[in-house]
Design a protein around this nucleic acid. Structure first.
Lengths: 213, 213, 213, 213
DNA sequence: TATGAATGAGCGTTCATTCAT
DNA sequence: AATGAATGAACGCTCATTCAT
């Protein structure tokens, strides 16, 4: 499935080298930032290596020192973004350790919703940029971190136990993430968005209630 | 927002001419089918007008008689697909008119889930193909049809009345559609997928129960 | 010289058939008019057979009944225009038969200047349209008619005889026609244009005076 | 007027970058030379970017580093040619500073006539190549340089003063340039061409005589 | 190590021309 | 005689990638 994504010219998507020196880190960050800027300003369609390099203040050649090809660059940008997101979710989970379930659910929704909404154009640009790449590994890796964190959190709930924690957790996460994305895509107004978030919360709470052992 | 999608050179996305003769209809269908084939086999990245025309058994020139440019072709393909999906949902809603709420929710989930899952590669290819286009209008038009149908259906429920039918309906639809997409993107196995669908149903039922006046 | 103009695909530049019936004449005229319109509105660069046919209210197929190819169409349009111009010049020459030389020269300048200036965009469009065709035959044929007419006129002058009528005539015509074109290309203002015409007249008169036997 | 020439998509006609290194200068020169070659051998109609690049021994991409599009290339070629011509005319004017009027006129005619005639196919090819572009700026710039030079020259004449130097100068230049072009277009033989040049000289001299204060 | 000029395959698109109806 | 859908060669142009400096 999706073989063509990688098939034609199996592109090495991992960075060519990890930046070791301080200068390299700065350079790579500049490149990432430039990529995002171009993505926002011009769209994936007009994201060219030249433009990125220009905006980053380096030469194309230098860019190719850190990323074997354009895809790898975009891939890495998304990777970074997902890692940041996972960080935030893990932080939330840690903060809700041993809290009541309701607070957990609310915190989870709040965190994810805010993360996706605070810079909507960035979210959208990133969604779009990976669309034609095989981002399975990215998603999976993100999912694993999140699942681990939320599972652990839910297991620590002081006011509930779940007979099938695993599926409950998966459901919760999938519904929340999916709903946010869909609300996002529909382009609902802020007011509606807020109401929707409330309803989602209530729905999840009702579900958790029913799912408790 | 997303201005670059249309801004640079507002591309006319509407078909150049409606096929009038039988032959023309066949041609257009062949082009659609070919587009989908190429999309599946090669991915958006390698979807070229030449390749599509070739597979459709027509000349590029002919393609351009019906579609003003490549984007319009892809756009139209997605439009067609969303229209078919809306048709199916409307049919479901009609079939559930004046039924109990539970049956409605179950039918809705079932219909959408099946539609998106029966030919997963097609779904994925289409998701990807529109990613870098401004498909707002498409989404909106689809959403309107669906919202109208589901709202009407829910209002006809024999066993329930909703004080805020509008938001309940929006929530239901957004959650269902979003969850399906997310489950899809995670690439869950069939077994998990099935379980997830069950859980989603239960969650929605719990929500509807709580939402009844 | 200029072999490439005809070399690649020696294009038959003469009309396919002379319109015999009244209807055909109307059609051909419509096509000519349409060609000119498109030329004015869009420029040679965007003069396409489809556009011309559309504006003429006929099908491309019909157009090809009267003109073997696009070049022939443009060629014929210029031919027609030059013929009209030659008509006017001949009329002027006839009107000045047996007049004094000064009146002849003035009339010639006046006629040509007016002809080229009364619809400047048309003049310019036509100049441009033939630029990349071998219009030698056209020019030659026009030149012959004009030379004959002006020679005859000058020979009939009541107040002068020229020892070398032929070269005087050629000089006069070449200078007048060339100057008009050059003034035209420089895009001089109406005021300057008028002054220039006066000066040209004086120059020609001085020349004729000197050239008289 | 002629709005369509620029209107549709105002094409940037100025070179993309000035060649800085020696190698680049060579490259640009090779491209110019190749353009002229192709123009001569195939005509504007068959002047394609690929062909030019091929003949210049560079890749299309390189061509596009120096010229933003095909039109700009042709435009620049004509610009260069007109600049060279203006150089020659200025040199002539300088050489005739403070000379008698007759020598000035003769030198001017001689210079221009020779310049346009020494490589007639080149002249013709260039005339044709700009035909469908907005070369107003080119012409104007050329005219200004020439006008300045000739005006200065005439003003320095030792044997004459002109009450309206400006219009006399304009007339002289327009007549000479126009006549040369027209003689050229008529395709007159060398013998006739020579005679014509003599007559033009006499005509101009007669005019100047009359125009002296 | 960093540069950026050079490459050239490959793309989207046009439009003169044909010919079945 | 008239139509206009179909053709497909040919074009201008882009941009990821390389490599001599």
């Amino acid at each position: 499935m999706d073989s063509h994504l990688a098939a034609r010219t199996p592109p090495p998507l991992s960075p060519r080298k990890r930046p070791r020196q301080a200068r390299a880190v700065v350079t790579v960050d500049a490149i990432f930032e430039a990529t995002l800027q171009v993505l926002l300003a011009e769209g994936m369609r007009h994201l060219t290596t030249t433009r990125v390099a220009e905006r980053a203040g380096v030469s194309v050649g230098t860019m190719y020192q850190y990323f074997p090809n354009k895809q790898a660059l975009v891939y890495a940008l998304n990777e970074r973004s997902l890692e940041t997101l996972a960080d935030r979710i893990e932080a939330t989970c840690r903060a809700c350790h041993a809290a009541p379930v309701n607070r957990m659910v609310e915190a989870l929704i709040e965190t994810y919703w805010r993360a996706k909404t605070e810079r909507p154009e960035v979210t959208r640009a990133l969604y779009r940029s990976v669309a034609e790449m095989d981002n399975t590994a990215l998603i999976e890796s993100f999912a694993q971190r999140v699942d681990a964190a939320t599972t652990e959190m839910l297991a620590s709930a002081t006011d509930a136990t779940f007979t099938d924690l695993h599926i409950v957790n998966l459901t919760l996460v999938t519904v929340i993430f999916g709903t946010v994305r869909n609300a996002f895509e529909r382009g609902v107004s802020d007011a509606v968005s807020h109401a929707l978030k409330q309803q989602l919360l209530e729905m999840c709470l009702a579900y958790m209630q029913a799912a408790m052992a």
